[in-house]
């Protein structure tokens, strides 16, 4: 890009905040009532990371990876490709990255069984659980909580498995709990990148909640680095 240093973050924003927030209302209405099974699957994941299960042929770890992968594919197709791309052509380039994330989760978590989602009292375990709980329960409430200021109703709630931000934050949380070594960074790359993109978008729109995806990304990275600079356990 010529003279790239002359561009501000706002110069890359193609739409108004009103259009952006109404997009979630329209999307929720279009996919309703899928929000209910999406949240139910999130609740099942929560149960399994607190009490992992092992059946004769299958463990809950592999099922969590499958659910997460399904969420990434669904968000890529239904939200990024079919919805967000109508106002932001760049979303068509992001959607394949979301599919790639799903494939990585399937390959590493479901087929190779390298992810173990058991929340413990280590820093990573606590941060991971907090991020996942936030994405499942609190993030959908951000829209109605700021509604008096921004005029956004509950119908614009961003739900895990339906919208990209809570899906990415939930994945960061689960990977904080369940992934180790170099594989963790491989799996964290796309969710982290999305959180940065989302922060940039929200910040350019002047949205007060822009700090949320950035903070989630920061917590995921810090908790990942924590064992290298001190004890990994809280107890």
């Amino acid at each position: 890009m010529p003279e790239w240093w002359t561009y501000r973050l706002e110069d890359f924003l193609l739409f108004s905040p009103r259009v952006y927030w109404r997009m979630f209302e329209l999307h929720n209405a279009a996919v309703w009532p899928l929000q209910i099974p999406a949240l139910a699957l999130g609740a099942i994941i929560l149960v399994w990371i607190v009490r992992p299960r092992q059946w004769p042929d299958l463990g809950s770890d592999r099922l969590v990876s499958i659910i997460l992968a399904a969420a990434w594919v669904w968000v890529a197709w239904s939200f990024l490709w079919n919805r967000y791309a109508t106002i932001n052509w760049a979303a068509t380039y992001v959607a394949p990255a979301f599919v790639l994330q799903a494939l990585l989760l399937l390959w590493i978590g479901s087929l190779r069984g390298r992810l173990h989602f058991a929340a413990d009292r280590t820093v990573r375990g606590v941060v991971g659980l907090a991020l996942f709980l936030y994405s499942l329960v609190l993030h959908p409430l951000v829209a109605p909580l700021v509604a008096p200021l921004a005029g956004r109703p509950i119908q614009a709630a961003e739900v895990f498995g339906i919208a990209p931000d809570p899906t990415a934050i939930a994945t960061l949380g689960l990977l904080s709990i369940g992934a180790g070594g170099a594989i963790a960074w491989l799996l964290l790359a796309i969710p982290l990148a999305w959180c940065v993109v989302s922060w940039a978008t929200l910040h350019a729109m002047g949205a007060s909640e822009s700090w949320i995806p950035l903070t989630a990304a920061g917590l995921a990275v810090l908790s990942r680095l924590w064992p290298r600079i001190g004890s990994g356990a809280l107890r």
């Binding site: 193609l14 739409f15 108004s16 259009v19 109404r22 997009m23 329209l26 919805r83 109508t86 106002i87």
Partner: peptide, 8 residues
Amino acid sequence: ITFNVGDD
């Protein structure tokens, strides 16, 4: 920006 309203 103003007319980029998608399918709303």
